[in-house]
């Protein structure tokens, strides 16, 4: 799922400096699960913002809301009436949710309250790690199910590089070398022969975001 981390509150305070009444909107999906933007975080951030502004003698009113999933238009539109009452919106959903609001409420400033970090998995409670970069053409079949695009610092398709040392990455010393993991995994599966196949360079400009905005259109689903 999408993993995010709350922005430092002083940065958020700078965005909100000109406003005295805002809506703070969380999201009940991914950011709730990674404890960055659910109802609890909304409550905490709202309290922090109010205190910070009280302290400098410039009170702020913060309305709080947490739609189930901010990236769906219907959920976003449910906020219409509330948004009319405020001067700006602070959204602590992921970057997608922020933009859903922007699309539906073009006249009001909308600020992000979290940094959308990556697509990742939970390692243990409170620890998340990147697993996918949404590159647009999945090669996990060739690499034993371990993604070198998200897990190799150099995104090598035919690794490892010379910097792989004792199973660790030379760029980020604490990280496992993705190609070591790939090798170990293929060995376990008795599929080392897969490494003999050269994985061709990815067509970043066609499948991935280098060619600009990507879009999925399912004609069969359109209404």
């Amino acid at each position: 799922m999408i993993k995010a981390e709350q922005k430092p509150i002083d940065e958020i305070l700078k965005y909100l400096n000109p406003y005295n009444k805002i809506l703070l909107s969380g999201c009940g999906a991914c950011v709730t699960v990674c404890h960055a933007g659910g109802e609890k975080e909304v409550e905490l951030l709202a309290s922090g913002l109010r205190m910070a502004r009280q302290k400098i003698g410039k009170k702020i009113e913060v309305l709080e809301v947490t739609p189930a999933r901010q990236c769906e238009p219907e959920f976003a539109l449910e906020l219409s009436e509330t948004i009319e009452k405020v001067e700006a919106v602070l959204s602590i959903s992921c970057g997608v949710g922020v933009q859903t609001l922007v699309r539906h409420f073009p006249k009001i400033p909308i600020f992000p309250g979290v940094n959308t970090s990556f697509l990742g998995e939970t390692i243990t409670h409170g620890v998340w790690e990147e697993r996918c970069q949404a590159c647009g053409n999945c090669i996990l079949e060739k690499t034993g199910g371990i993604c070198p695009i998200s897990r190799c610092a150099k995104q090598l398709l035919n690794g490892p590089c010379g910097g792989s040392s004792k199973g660790k990455c030379e760029i980020k010393k604490e990280a496992d070398c993705a190609w070591q993991l790939i090798y170990d995994r293929l060995k376990t599966l008795n599929q080392l022969y897969k490494l003999e196949e050269i994985i061709p360079a990815k067509r970043w400009g066609v499948e991935s975001r280098d060619s600009g905005l990507r879009r999925i259109v399912r004609e069969d689903l359109k209404v």
């Binding site: 509150i9 305070l13 905490l44 922090g48 910070a52 302290k55």
Partner: peptide
């Protein structure tokens, strides 16, 4: 610890 981070951020 979370609250402390928040307080530091808002200068308390």
């Amino acid at each position: 610890a979370y609250a402390h981070r928040m307080l530091e951020g808002i200068g308390l």
